[in-house]
């Protein structure tokens, strides 16, 4: 199957986007002969320059520019370089793609995204309601919209607690002064609301999963972060045999009929209880671990998006590990110039 696949999230830094791991999965597929188009927001996103990954990269505007301008650029790229499928990998751009799904479809561009309802109801701010609806334990949470709410936190929460941004960032606060400081930092960066979450003591464990939109779990691989950066990102992780995590994932996908990739973030307490702390509505950056463990989730997502039936994976290798590393890529100023001036660059692989 010959396909041109456009991928975002190429920032392969210490806070990596899922773009490169997704591309690695696709390129390892024996069934897909892919030409990869990179869609980049910044001209120093490392993925653009990594050898053997992307055939051509185009600069695109940030989603905050507005859906119209954003889609105009996508259409412009498509007219020049026809795209069969787009895989958006960043939370902040998902809404724009979901909103433009039918337009993209009319242009012959496939996507495989959650529905608006699935996307909206799992927002951090709605987590308590979500847990109740789907029978999952979740930490107590509260939405902060201003300073006056912070003073009242003592009445409802015990310190420490977590202060979280709408899309990204989470900090532990041990008193109301720290809440105020985190609130300022987060709201300046991500806007409101800021979310307060009960601090659940335990081990953070995650599942990367893929739902077919009909209630079937096509893939699910649990992982524990072994080494975490100061941004809370996994620098190393290991696949687990934990069947309870798989059961929770399958149950949730079956009830929500989740469509697309997802990451479930959970805390396993010392007493063996699992609390769902977040659902990311897209493939996470550590997805290549699942590929290596035997579940090529990016490949399966491509096939589902192209209307090909995919049988659920039934096994994966337990004890498979990943360790990230940094590597200085060398490039020439001409490459940077090409991207800065023309907004596109062909990578000779």
């Amino acid at each position: 199957m010959k396909l041109t696949i456009a991928v975002t999230g190429l920032s392969n830094t210490d806070n990596p986007g899922p773009g490169i791991p997704v591309i690695r999965g696709i390129l390892e597929s024996k069934e897909i002969d892919a030409r990869i188009i990179g869609l980049a927001y910044e001209n120093l996103e490392p993925g653009i320059y990594m050898p053997g990954m992307i055939d051509k990269t185009y600069m695109i505007p940030y989603p905050s520019t507005g859906t119209e301008a954003y889609m105009e650029r996508i259409v412009q790229i498509h007219e020049k370089d026809p795209i069969n499928l787009i895989i958006p990998n960043l939370d902040a751009e998902l809404y724009t793609f979901m909103k433009s799904q039918s337009k993209l479809q009319d242009l012959g561009i496939a996507t495989f995204l959650p529905t608006f309802e699935q996307f909206e109801e799992r927002h951090k701010a709605n987590l308590e309601k979500y847990g109740e609806k789907y029978g999952i334990k979740v930490p107590k949470s509260k939405i902060l919209t201003g300073y006056s709410d912070i003073k009242k936190l003592d009445e409802e929460f015990e310190y420490p607690l977590l202060v979280k941004g709408k899309f990204y960032d989470a900090y532990v606060a041990y008193n109301s002064e720290q809440v105020t400081s985190h609130f300022n930092k987060i709201s300046a960066k991500w806007g409101l609301p800021v979310i307060i979450q009960e601090f659940i003591k335990g081990t953070e464990v995650n599942v990367v999963a893929l739902g077919d939109g009909l209630g079937n779990t096509i893939a699910a691989v649990p992982m524990r972060k072994q080494f975490i950066t100061d941004k809370g990102k996994a620098w190393s992780g290991i696949t687990l045999s934990d069947q309870e995590m798989i059961r929770i994932t399958k149950d949730l996908i079956s009830k929500t009929k989740w469509r697309g990739g997802m990451e479930l973030e959970m805390i396993k307490t010392n007493t063996g209880d699992y609390y769902m702390i977040e659902i990311n509505p897209r493939i996470p950056a550590w997805v290549y671990l699942a590929v290596g463990a035997g579940q090529n989730i990016p490949e399966a997502l491509v096939k589902l998006a192209m209307g090909i039936e995919v049988a659920p994976f039934t096994t994966y290798q337990v004890g498979k590990m990943f360790i990230r590393y940094s590597w200085d890529l060398l490039g020439d100023i001409q490459e940077f110039e090409q991207l800065s001036i023309f907004g596109e660059i062909e990578k000779k692989n």
Binding site: R224, Q226, I238, L240, S241, D242, K268, V318, G319
Partner: peptide, 9 residues
């Protein structure tokens, strides 16, 4: 003597 618990990693 390397012990691995696959459930917890």
């Amino acid at each position: 003597g390397f012990l691995f618990d696959p459930n917890t990693g």
